[in-house]
């Protein structure tokens, strides 16, 4: 029994069957990668997990509870945090404020009107945010305008914001897309560190095989909306069906 169980999930957009009968079982405290060629339905699947899309068929269970029919913020409160393909941070705010928001959200739930309290009087929140910035190696950037940071730093901040909520499942959508090699390697190191230090399950969608094989313990290969194989990285590497679907004839 995994922490995330996807059963027979199907999603159709008009004439396109984006997902057909996807079954996925992510075991607790593992890193599970979902790979596949363009148009395989990876992002659609992820959007079904976080409440952005509602699948036509099937069920998605997180820790024994269905996520279907819940809004993204409710699913987040269940313990699923999502990292976007392009880093989604609060660009107009500084780094510390960025980090404080998820911690407020974690403490207060969906709403608390503290309209005339002073933000900086919330010592616990500020401390927790500072601590997470130290963990993320960004303490020196705490007053920096978030939009002014490099792509890699934005990614680091976004991952930190997700971790600040102490999620049980971290979903990453191509976390290194469009990154320079150095930033990619930094991100890999960061994710490895997170995996080692925290009780957290990570599900990662990725194009970059280097990233996938450095991190994943299990890999599911999607092709044309259906899972082709699910296995360990070593077995996937040599799997003929995978080579054919994913790497193409040339490989």
């Amino acid at each position: 029994m995994g922490i995330l169980e996807v059963k027979d999930v199907g999603k159709r957009f008009g004439g396109l069957q984006a997902l057909g009968n996807v079954n996925l079982d992510v075991a607790e405290n593992t890193v599970h990668a979902i790979i596949g060629p363009n148009g395989a339905g990876k992002s659609t699947l992820l959007n079904c997990l976080v409440g952005k899309l509602i699948p036509d068929t099937g069920s998605v269970m997180f820790d024994g509870q269905s996520v279907l029919g819940r809004t993204p913020y409710q699913i987040n409160q269940m313990g699923i945090s999502r990292v976007f393909q392009t880093p989604e941070i609060f660009g107009d705010l500084n780094v510390l404020e960025n980090m404080m928001i998820p911690i407020f959200a974690k403490r207060d739930g969906a709403f608390r009107l503290h309209a005339i309290e002073n933000m900086m009087d919330e010592k616990d929140i500020v401390e927790a945010a500072e601590k997470m910035l130290v963990d993320m190696n960004m303490a020196d950037k705490r007053y920096m305008h978030a939009a002014a940071m490099s792509r890699g730093d934005k990614r680091r901040l976004e991952i930190g914001m997700c971790l600040a909520q102490e999620p049980r499942l971290l979903l990453l959508d191509e976390p290194t897309a469009g990154m320079a090699r150095a930033d990619t390697n930094n991100t890999i190191d960061l994710l490895k560190q997170i995996k080692d230090e925290r009780d957290i399950t990570i599900a990662i969608i990725e194009h970059d095989m280097h990233v996938v094989f450095s991190l994943a313990e299990r890999i599911t290969v999607l092709a044309q909306g259906t899972p082709l194989v699910e296995d360990t990285p070593d077995n996937i590497k040599g799997h003929p069906k995978v080579r054919e679907a994913y790497l193409g004839e040339a490989a």
Binding site: V50, T71, P72, Y73, N76, Q77, S81, R82, F84, E88, I89, F90, G91, D92, L93, I101, P102, A105, K106, G109, A110, F111, M161, Q165
Partner: peptide
């Protein structure tokens, strides 16, 4: 909300 409503939605805030 002004800066990034998308992120806020995925941060457990309604």
């Amino acid at each position: 909300v002004k800066s990034n409503q998308q992120r806020l939605n995925y941060t457990g805030l309604n």
